[in-house]
Nucleic acid binder design. Structure first.
Lengths: 185, 185, 185, 185
DNA sequence: TATGAATGAGTCTTCATTCAT
DNA sequence: GATGAATGAAGACTCATTCAT
């Protein structure tokens, strides 16, 4: 319910009530309201990372891999978006949260950068691109599309979203889109 | 200071103190705390829109235009990011703010989609792309890069960021990057 | 509008607005909000007294006189009730208002007592009654009936109310109700 | 202390302080400041009603019964007057309070009217009187005398007040005062 | 360990009053 | 004299936190 009303707007009473305990009991489990967010944040970020890091070598085809990762990411985001964004919001207020966001993003970015670098080495991607900056930008694209699509109600079919994100990503780094990949997957 | 601590965490007292007036005076100017955010939000969104809508026909070269728009956007974002993101945060709580975000995004998205459609008509962009979804995705990329770069402290040179965003955007839609645009420019 | 919302609930702004001046101007006319009530109270009490003291020797028939006075009182009350009751309310808070109520009542009571004494002397009223206490009680009856009837919405015809008050008053002091006074009069 | 300063002038802080708890605790017991008045009002009205409805068949002599009821009423009023009048004051502002007053009065009035009707049927009271209007008027007399005497400081002996109220009431309805009831009783 | 009454700092808001124009 | 922006004390109410049971 943190994800529904935001951290400052969510009261300890409400949290406790939904957990089926008295608000007094809350403090046997968490040192403070902030400690709750800390815990939740770490848990969710962990889940997010785990989800992404799992689906690795489904395929050796670069395009397939990008596609699989994007699909994965969107699925994870659907579950975690509210909390992640809440932590992102808090990053304006507490350095701890800023670090948490940076850490989380770092995993995605470094994986993405590594992948791009390999494609460049294999002459499959534009060698002029800064791998890290490119990974940041394309990761940002996927993340923000997830938000706009899932949270702000842009109406697209999931297939179409994943397909486009992958095409755009591939096109952006100069990876030729294989002719056998159609919009309908 | 709204942008520093977030809306719920910022007290009317603090706003007033920084404005050098008593908290009573606050209510001479704003009907309520919410009215302040409303006013600020509309103002900032207006500025954002104005800034973007200005720089039009700088060039007829599609790549140049994308480049100019990205530069423009980043400059605007630098001034407004905190407020825009605050409104975005609030969009989870109040429909009004959600609408504001949607409206603002709509302007960017529809302009972008229109541009993409024209490029497709001119055979300069991949005709298989859904113009709107593409505009959403690439707009999201620019927006989120601005956030990650400016707010979360990824260290890149501004030139490099603008250059890459433009390359990626161009590549994504299949616009061939003219040879005379280099990363070091 | 004091009479509509009560003294504590009526703001200086509201008073000023209705008077068509700025709230700043209020203080050129009244020293304070309390001064306003003081002034209004004195004025209204004055009107009330004036109204009653006017209609004197309409008739020499005691019953007629009681009747005329009751009718008079009800008419005055209709205009002043809210303010009078407000002052009565305030009498719990400020001695000044208590005095005002006492003064006002004193005029009615002493007139009433005087009338009763005369009737006793003329053997027309029960000589066992304490004139003052009787005047207090019967005055209280009229006053409170006015309130219950006019303010709390008991549904009676005005004629009937005046008639009954007079009958009751007359009967209470042992004044024989002349046979030619009917309820329908 | 509500009774001392009136509802609008009494702060939650003051109530809490006198109750020996913090103002925060107030809201553990009452949902709002208004809820306090509501509760107090209902309680007091209940007490008032209970007190009156108790003393029933002390005697079968009509005069005695009127006397007993008046004494009873005055005693109850002494304890409740301030709160009752506060509710009466509030009846100008909130319909709920107006209803409360009307309900309370209704009990007294209907009982009084019933009594008068019986006396009329028994040829002991003036048959020309409207029982309800008469009950309203005489009830109003008792109520307001209680206020003037107890709250505004008219100096009378309690015995004398009860005695006179009874005489006046009896005389008003044409009930012959038995010779064995003296003023000094 | 669980509870929930109690706490009190803190929040938004109102309003009588002042004062420079 | 009239104005209305500014003031700040005060009000009702919230809520994270504590603690006796």
């Amino acid at each position: 319910m943190l994800e529904e009303r935001g951290f400052p707007e969510t009261g300890v009473d409400e949290v406790s009530r939904r957990a089926g305990v008295s608000h007094g009991t809350f403090y046997t489990h968490f040192e403070s309201k902030e400690a709750l967010l800390r815990e939740v944040a770490h848990t969710v970020v962990g889940e997010m990372l785990a989800a992404i890091l799992l689906g690795p070598g489904i395929s050796s085809d670069p395009y397939e891999r990008i596609y699989a990762t994007n699909r994965q990411y969107l699925a994870s985001w659907r579950r975690c978006s509210r909390i992640i964004r809440m932590v992102d919001q808090m990053s304006g207020a507490g350095e701890e949260y800023r670090q948490l966001m940076i850490e989380m993003r770092e995993v995605f970015v470094s994986r993405g950068a590594e992948g791009i670098r390999k494609l460049q080495d294999a002459r499959l991607a534009d060698p002029a691109l800064n791998p890290r900056l490119t990974a940041v930008a394309l990761g940002a694209m996927v993340e923000q599309v997830a938000h706009v699509w899932l949270d702000l109600g842009e109406e697209f079919a999931e297939e179409e979203v994943v397909d486009h994100l992958t095409r755009l990503w591939a096109g952006a780094i100069g990876l030729k889109v294989p002719s056998n990949h159609s919009v309908s997957e």
